[in-house]
Design a protein around this nucleic acid. Structure first.
Lengths: 404, 404
DNA sequence: TATTAATTCGTCAACTTACCGAACTAATAG
DNA sequence: CTATTAGTTCGGTAAGTTGACGAATTAATA
């Protein structure tokens, strides 16, 4: 048979799996009605999915008149993915199963030697997490690593990640893949964060949004038409290089980016020093807000310039929502100021929110990307049109309030 | 049969049509090899496509050893779409046939009464064009109208189009559809321009790009991941509202947009007046460049601020190309200045070009959108996965150099 | 020049996959 | 016991495949 014809069964298998994942436990008859397939076909498909280990029968559903239905659900342990958030100071690892449950998260200081040492560290953490939860190592099929830089999918290196040594000198993805024995996907951490908010955060069911991360730097993850925007060179969302804030025509703006020079933590610290002659860290600036006009001034400038960045995003891609995250971005004191400033410069009806998922957005995004990947490779096998949309995330075990 | 199974033949018909459109004239055997279908199936599919009038046989292909092949090609006259570019001063209409040939273009002054008068004008022009070329009216299946504003697909009105009266008070799309007797699609003209460049211009095979139109206003059409970015409210690409140029915190920037206040034609005229006390039009400013330092200064400011807009696009979506169009945007004198200024504020490797298609970009984009629509509705009939990619545009008859 | 071989095009016939609908068996509430 | 719902069995249909074969055409050869 032709490709197309050959793939009908596979496509239907994907569709059936998708319904079970979203609406399960669910009976054959109900799935059949839902998909417009015959009960007969559904029995065959369900049998195949069961014998391949993707779904399993669960207890009879009684209570209605008529024969009790045998329900199906996804086998949670059929496959696992490791979600990794690699930061300059900390590495976080969580495990997600096929039923979209995400388990407890391990956090360690990032190995300061960088490069191969970090590869080993991540590989060890992944194995430890599986062991800790008594799970079969060989069911772990994929790791998704969020990195604070621009992943190069050709070479497997990570560029522009100054806080972790040697990440751009080795085939990071390749080495990790070798150490773990399965595929590894690397992706920018802010891109993962927007995927996280889209999957399990405040932006569920929103197909045009941006996630603005404000911390040691300023960057955005962008979803347009429901799809992540990476850009030609993976440089999409580099808000730091927006041409305002500092003078973009100065040479220093070529290196650090005009906006980043006046918004991120370094700039806030420097500005406070400039105003007062005192060197304090950013959390301290927040603490002093009540008594200290200078602290207010620092926050106001950051808020004003960030509001301009938000206006720029809004003018260019007109998203439905913009979500704020990052160590400073999710602080209410700053958020309310950004919102106020933004109101002064635009009539855009875009909704602004603080991230639901806090520091776990990237980790959850990594899980979502990983699960989609597993679906695509193991179930769909590259059949066009056989995408499986992820069911809502189950985050309870991660200590995040789920609003699914 | 299930939806999927029912649609196999339709899907194969689309695939076969697509191959014929791209590679025709082509024989059954060659198509079969190309698609991995059996010759048998192909004979059936070709017969159906032929009897429905989509493709036709053309002379035997001799020269190789073996039996001569009967080739198939798309029936050019099987369907037509009208491409309309509705501007504040001019309306342009062109006709495209199913073979992607675009015929001579009619231009008229836009009826100054706006509203219903413009609807009638467009309907008349469409009919005249068909008659002029001796084509059957009832083969005209769709009109795509590029409008200088934000189309509201709910109400059929066009908002933010101050140059054409009453466009936001009537169901423009609906009225035109009634006058013509077939479907009408309305789309922002700059969005169509970027589609045009993507299909038949400088940006062929580029899936991340922006088209910057600089004229009476400044705006962009954006394609990301090969898809047009419209934004939640159709407001994507509103460069005029980028928060720099003029002070975005001034009240006037809420109305006109901070950037538009210093870049578009009005701003250039005003600035020249401010410098010299003389009121002249923009083309005149260009004419005086050689002798007049003030004219240079006006252009320099426009170039500098436009370069910042380009930097903003680049920072946010990291496109492969940015194409310049519009009455001023495509002038070499300005373009070279923008390029120079852009080089000062970024290291982005984005390629900058002047539009290939000149003032016809939107018209050609309208044709591409229309032909895609016709494919989707008449051939694919909404079958998922049955998209037909457009073959290269044949623009020779439009007086545009084709580089397909 | 006539014949034969090689090659390619398109069709026919038999078989396979995957779906459907109808009839049938099984289980369960009332 | 009966109405109702769940799931299976059994033919039937749509669409695609493979392999054999006739038709057409070029190339080589007697």
């Amino acid at each position: 048979m032709t490709e197309t014809a050959n793939n009908i069964r596979r496509l239907n298998k994907c569709n059936v799996f998708e319904v079970i994942a979203h609406e399960g436990p669910i009976s054959r008859a109900a799935i059949a009605k839902r998909l417009g397939l015959s009960k007969q076909t559904l029995s065959e498909v369900a049998k195949e999915l069961e014998s391949e280990g993707w779904v399993q029968q669960v207890g009879l559903e009684r209570g209605n008149v008529g024969r009790a239905a045998m329900n199906f659900e996804v086998v949670p342990d059929a496959a696992f993915v490791a979600a990794v958030d690699l930061g300059g100071t900390k590495v976080k690892v969580a495990i997600a199963n096929l039923a979209c449950q995400i388990f407890g998260e391990a956090t360690e200081k990032t190995d300061p030697r960088g490069g191969g040492a970090v590869v080993d560290q991540i590989a060890r953490l992944c194995r430890e997490m599986m062991d800790q939860h008594g799970l079969q190592q060989d069911r772990l099929r994929l790791a998704v690593v969020g990195v604070p830089g621009v992943p190069d999918h050709e070479s497997g290196a990570v560029h522009m990640a100054p806080n972790i040594p040697q990440l751009d000198e080795i085939d990071f993805a390749g080495e990790l893949s070798k150490a773990l024995g399965f595929d590894v996907v690397i992706e920018n951490d802010v891109n993962l964060a927007v995927l996280g908010e889209h999957w399990g955060g405040v932006a569920q069911h929103v197909d045009d949004l941006a996630y603005v991360a404000l911390g040691t730097g300023i960057g955005a993850g962008i979803i347009v038409n429901g799809e992540l925007v990476r850009g030609k060179n993976g440089g999409a969302g580099e808000l730091g290089y927006l041409p305002f804030g500092a003078d973009p025509f100065e040479d220093a703006s070529l290196r650090q980016g005009a906006l980043e020079r006046v918004t991120a933590t370094d700039a806030m610290r420097d500005y406070y020093f400039e105003l007062t002659g005192e060197k304090i860290e950013v959390p301290e600036i927040f603490d002093r807000l009540d008594q200290d006009d200078h602290a207010q001034k620092v926050l106001d400038r950051t808020a004003r310039e960030t509001a301009r960045a938000v206006a720029a995003i809004s003018a260019l891609i007109d998203p439905e929502q913009i979500v704020f995250g990052g160590s400073i971005g999710r602080r209410e004191e700053l958020f309310s100021r950004i919102k106020a400033q933004f109101g002064l410069i635009t009539r855009s009806p875009v909704e602004l929110y603080i991230s639901d998922l806090g520091g776990k957005a990237a980790l959850i995004g990594a899980a979502s990307l990983g699960l989609s990947h597993v679906h695509a490779t193991l179930l769909a096998g590259g059949v066009p049109g056989a995408e499986i949309t992820l069911p809502p995330a189950k985050l309870a075990k991660l200590g995040v309030v789920s609003n699914g």
